[in-house]
Simulated assay, not measured.
Amino acid sequence: MRPDPFSGLSAFLAVAEAGGFTAAAARLDVSPAAVSQAVRALEERLGTPLFVRTTRRVGLTEAGAALLARVNPAAAEIIAAVEEAAATDEPSGLLRLTVPRMAVPLVVEPVIPALRLAHPRIAIEIAVEDATVDLPGRGFDAGIRIGEYIARDMVAVRLTRDIAWSVVASPAYLAAHGRPEAPQELTAHEAIRYRFPRSGALYRWEFERDGRTFSVDPPGSLIVNDGALLASCARAGLGLAYVADIAVESELHDGHLVGVLEPFLPRTPGLFLYFPQRAQAQPKLRAFIDVAKQVLQPMR
């Protein structure tokens, strides 16, 4: 009898995503021994180990990583197909979203309670990370990112107004160090720098003058890779920070932060929900979009 080609794959995917057998077992609601046995049977059937097991961590072998790259997108497609086939008038299923930290107070916190109230059969998993994410490869239904960073082959739905980029500092910092009037004066100031989580590159501050764009690499001895921490450090008076105005709107309004260099700062598209074309028919995703539009439109 031909073996079931799907046998052990759900356990394999759970371990790969959770990073361990115990965590995978909790997700699948089975015992760790059952997960281990299923993975071991799959490895024996394939004739190659899929995981490197140590006392501290569980990692993928080269063969395991190759299998994950092929199987994970297919698994997402199968799950979506099953959910669509079983769809009723009430959207259901697990909606997995990847969002940047900036989107948590602007989108996630106002939308998710309304979504849960309107559609209690939709389960929600949210991963907060600023790095660019391969949606199908990581098993996400959709993501939220700044518009200019979304690939053109994705469907994009606007969630917020456009972003006006801002250089901000606390009133105490400006009182002690003065207010820069032009980007070239940043060399005399302390900048709080942002490092991209995935590439590791430091962000160069972008400006405009007479229709021309240019960037500045300001000096700074404090580097972070989290936007919320960036604003927090600026509020603490540790230097100037380059941030999206929608991320610090309340701090600018109440005077905890002050904007400088406004005539030189660009505007870019705001936050968008994005997803592959084939995913837009999913009732759970359509429900999120409808609720987000209802909740965020007045705020925009």
Results as ranks from 00 to 15, higher is better:
109 E>F: 08
43 E>S: 15
134 D>I: 01
223 I>K: 10
128 V>L: 02
152 R>L: 14
247 A>R: 09
267 R>M: 08
285 L>T: 01
148 E>R: 14
184 Q>K: 12
297 Q>M: 11
83 E>K: 03
58 V>G: 05
139 G>D: 00
176 A>E: 14
270 G>C: 07
103 A>W: 10
173 Y>R: 08
181 E>G: 14
288 F>S: 04
20 G>D: 05
17 E>S: 14
207 F>K: 06
115 L>D: 03
267 R>C: 12
228 A>I: 11
246 I>N: 14
86 A>I: 01
127 A>W: 00
187 T>V: 15
287 A>R: 03
54 T>I: 07
276 P>N: 05
7 S>W: 08
218 P>C: 08
186 L>S: 05
145 R>L: 08
135 L>S: 01
82 V>T: 10
167 V>P: 04
244 A>G: 15
228 A>T: 12
100 P>D: 03
147 G>L: 06
105 P>E: 08
193 R>F: 00
62 E>Q: 13
180 P>T: 09
242 Y>N: 15
9 L>H: 04
93 G>F: 00
15 V>K: 01
97 L>A: 03
82 V>Y: 05
246 I>D: 13
190 E>A: 09
253 H>D: 13
9 L>S: 02
87 A>R: 09
76 A>H: 02
31 S>M: 10
291 V>F: 01
23 A>P: 05
298 P>R: 10
242 Y>L: 09
116 R>G: 05
280 Q>W: 13
